[in-house]
Design a protein around this nucleic acid. Sequence first.
RNA 1: GCCCCCGUAGCUCAGCGGACAGAGCGGCGGCCUUCUAAGCCGCGGGCCGCAGGUUCGAAUCCUGCCGGGGGCGCCA
Length: 567
Amino acid sequence: MIGNRLSALLAEGLSAAQAAGEVGAAPAVAFAVERRDDELADYSSAEALRLARIVRAPPRAIAEAILAHLPPSPLVRRAEVAGPGFINVWLDDAWVFDQIQTVNAAGPAFGRSDQGGGARVQVEFVSANPTGPLTAGAGRGGVVGDALARLLEATGHDVTREYYVNDAGHQVEVLGQSVYHHYAAVFDAQAPFPADGYQGAYAAAWGAQIAREDGPRWLGGGAAADAAAFEARAVGIGLAEIRRDLDDLGIEFDVWFSEHDLRARGEVARALATLEANGYVARRDGAVWFVGGAGMEDRENVLVRSRGDPTYFAADIAYHRDKFETRQFERVIDVWGADHHGHVPRMKAAMEALDMDASAAQLEILVTQMVGIRTDGALGRQGKRSGKFVPLREVLDDVGPAATRYFFLSKAIDSQMEFDLELAKRQDPENPVYYIQMAHARCAGIQRTAAAAEASDGTAAASGAGASDSTAAASGAGALTDDDAALARLSLAFPEIVADAAQNREPHRVTHFLLDYARAFHAYYNKHRVVTADAALTARRLELVQAVRHVLANGLRLLGIDAPERM
RNA sequence: GCCCCCGUAGCUCAGCGGACAGAGCGGCGGCCUUCUAAGCCGCGGGCCGCAGGUUCGAAUCCUGCCGGGGGCGCCA
């Protein structure tokens, strides 16, 4: 990556300057190099300014000394000191154009790296209860988790995508009762609707579906004949709907991990036994409590209810132990919704109580902030049990998967976002995602033009007999312009964007880069013609266009958005 | 009361220690006989919530305050 190479180059310059006694000794410096790509510079470093304090010398003098000892490099056309002591670097155009061939040789792999070293990483996301349809908020977690998984794969990680299915516990019981109430009603039988039951219309729909498909065989007294089996039946419908939504969003999981199975295997009991052996358990009021975890001094949490059944917390502890101890993931990334943020500290405390390393190095918990859905101009309150929420399905049907994914991936995860449904629908054709896709389609269009010309005349350029590019013509046949160089330079920045986005767990960086990149290409497209009578120029520009197409396609693939050839 | 996130252009949001603060949408004005006008070019628009502090340098870090959202259950 260019940034790394320039960084190393500057570090060499500094060492040489220090060896020559021109700069004082200092601890090893990793030169931070920033990509600028504006009038000021292509790349820039402010490291001399920071060094000034350490070696007690004027920053400009340090920067000058570094440049004086800079080893020659094919990448660098020019390097100079600017302002208070910035080191500005301009890339060599010839080197940049050479790299375009490297881009095309890599093709779909351009942007990938092995910085992950093959580490086994689990990304657990969505994991919404199968007690109702996915909400728009769950969609955010899904899209972000999926994009993160794609980024990690592209940067050399061995990724497992996992959905933790809460198919056991109190909420599932309540769901079973809620659905059974409606199911029984189909056969004119009475069954109580639970006090905290699921109010959404879907509960009735599921009840009707079971009645239609299974007949009256579940009928019991006030409850289903085989309550556990009936719950499983309802959960099955819920999961099927969830899978369909996720499928339409282009999200696939490697593992659907069942909480029910985890309990059945005795893992929850085993985790509780370990906690107790380690002295983190207290019994009070007939319940079992988690006490004394690091940072949990002022809060105690129930592990086993007085009724005798374990809580979600207890099951999640066992689940995370399974991730690390049984399956040996080197790193686990949980993507949770904002409503779970209170669960973070106790989860980490519990990991430590199990003698596990819950440090950020192993367990990362990313919390996505709320998605406010604005309908009819008002921000609605979301809640699955109240039945008042905007289903992901509705968003998907209204704005489509590409725009939905783009919207969720265009913001940092810790920013609360507002999704105005009406606006989203109306703005459909104006959505930036189509702007990026259009850039890709235009690349394909240029290639079609070139191919058609070649087929009829033997050369791509011949087709452009009448066409020319006035800007390029001014500098002579076959000459590329500064605009070609700028577009090529921007293309070469892509791998770095991907690496940074993966490392920081910030998929939105890719989104923003692509928007910027598409803008650069559209401007270029309007100003310059690729297929012209100038055969040499045409050939070189077709290479550039091919590289642009790879960057756009690869970037969109990371976001899970398709790259159409025509629009 | 305690905890988490956010206050940046009319709206939705980037930028999160460096050089003049950016984009999309919206507004105004131009550009289609040549590779898709789902495009391009130009203009207008900001005490970066407020007040202190740290720093050579703060939208960016720290503290306090104000405002918005969320969480604090023997729910998950």
